[in-house]
């Protein structure tokens, strides 16, 4: 759970172009939390991005809860408590949800192995059926000579 919340945060910019904090709460933290939550009245926009009034109020609530001393995890947990897992824009990586996190990479892994095996099989076939040289030795020599002239 803790790691799930941290991952997107780690990937967010570490740059210092940020706006000055409002009051005691860091607006970046508000944004980061808001970016994980689904704006409940919109379709597929985060609370951070949505221009809707509801999202605006939800940002306000996030700010309020942080001001009251909640940790970011507690704020997120509060929203999950009220709306269910549905409100999280990326499913928590545990239980059945692990599937959506792991399967793409498992697929890549399997794919890599398959590519490697196929490539080996095909290249073995190449080794077993030698094909005549497409060009004769004289042409090869001429290519080599001209290439050499090009390369200083």
């Amino acid at each position: 759970m803790r790691r799930a919340a941290l991952l997107p945060i780690l990937l967010l910019p570490l740059l210092a172009w940020a706006a000055p904090p409002a009051g005691s709460v860091n607006e970046d933290t508000v944004r980061q939390i808001a970016a994980e939550l689904r704006c409940v009245v919109c379709q597929n926009l985060s609370v951070a991005d949505s221009p809707s009034e509801m999202a605006n109020q939800m940002r306000g609530i996030i700010r309020e809860r942080l001001q009251a001393g909640d940790t970011p995890e507690q704020v997120v947990a509060y929203f999950v408590d009220k709306y269910g897992e549905w409100i999280l824009l990326s499913p928590r990586p545990r239980g059945f949800n692990l599937l959506v996190w792991v399967l793409p990479f498992a697929g890549i892994g399997v794919g890599l192995v398959a590519v490697l095996l196929l490539a080996r099989r095909w290249s073995r076939r190449a080794a077993s059926e030698p094909v005549a040289e497409a060009i004769d030795a004289a042409t090869r020599e001429r290519i080599r000579r001209e290439m050499a002239e090009l390369e200083p």
Partner: peptide, 13 residues
């Protein structure tokens, strides 16, 4: 006005 009750009740519309 601040949407607190709405969120407390998990209102989405």
């Amino acid at each position: 006005p601040a949407g607190r009750i709405s969120v407390d009740y998990g209102v989405y519309g």
